[in-house]
Write a protein that binds this DNA or RNA. Structure first.
Lengths: 157, 157
DNA sequence: TCTGCGCCTTCCCATGATGGCAAGGTCAAG
DNA sequence: CTTGACCTTGCCATCATGGGAAGGCGCAGA
């Protein structure tokens, strides 16, 4: 048995990246096209799985696909300056900070409204009052955030 | 002039919700279908704009469209128990906390890796080393988070 | 050898919230 | 009437991911 070559399912299991996403990453050019068996099956070697693991780790840290593409380029480049990698990481950390700050601002506002809500059978509710208030006061512009319309919203669940 | 009735553009300006999104909200049933002029233009009264403002404030606090639908229902229901509103708010705050914790975990891991990166012209880089490490250690499962594959990712910006 | 099961392939659709563009109708002012 | 601003609908794109269908491949057991 040749453990050095595996099908996409095994590569998915070994890398933690779903087969679905492996195909997707290949399609968008994030990773090189996989070798194929004569009948069309994609085959992966240990090195390919290593790359996939790298991608997954980067996703776990919240890097975008675009950023991961850059990271992969640096990873493969033996003559990269580590300053470029660090810059990429710091840029991403700044994004994280901005999003964290934005969500914390939401949380604070919500908390303030909820604190005064009795939360009983009566209809009076400062939360609804706050939401229907004319003022734009709500959301005090999270420090250096993407202004009005943007916002963070959903994840994936 | 009848300030009580306006076209979608004016409603957008007065509510802070784009015309595009107003149509979208109507289409998905979040808000009732707007009245139309005989030639097909949507018309909005002050009350409609108030509703739109409510929706925007809720979006600004990060509520999902689904949750906003529930909030609107409670808002319109004069016999709502404030406990339901509060529960909705607290549920959302918990989601926010989870996402904040997840991103903070990413930030911490990234920070730890970056701290040891020289960030100069040399290729050695603990950040890349960390990403290519075999360990799954990266991302210490943010408290009560959507496990492995999920994660928070992008906003909009 | 036939059968069946599990894996693989591609292709299309959906999510959530939003923006953009295009083709065409409407309206008010000049 | 023309012009320009505004409206209409409809389709496409984003970002990362999952779901499912329809059909091919490969191996093992009867």
């Amino acid at each position: 048995m040749n453990m050095m070559q595996m099908n996409i399912g095994a590569a998915a299991r070994h890398s933690g990246v779903s087969a679905k996403m492996i195909r997707h990453y290949e399609e968008i050019g994030l990773i090189p096209k996989a070798a194929r068996t004569y009948s069309g099956y994609r085959t992966y070697a240990a090195g390919d799985v290593h790359t996939l693991r790298f991608v997954r780790q980067a996703r776990n840290l919240g890097f975008s696909i675009k950023q991961i593409g850059q990271l992969l380029g640096l990873w493969r480049n033996q003559r990269r300056p580590s300053s470029k990698v660090k810059a990429l990481a710091q840029e991403h950390m700044a994004e994280l900070d901005a999003r964290i700050a934005e969500m914390q601002a939401m949380k604070r506002t919500l908390q303030a409204l909820a604190e005064h809500c009795h939360g009983d059978e009566r209809p009076e509710c400062p939360i609804l009052d706050g939401l229907s208030a004319a003022r734009t006061s709500i959301i005090p512009t999270a420090a250096g955030a993407p202004a009005a319309g943007a916002a963070v919203r959903r994840s994936s669940a």
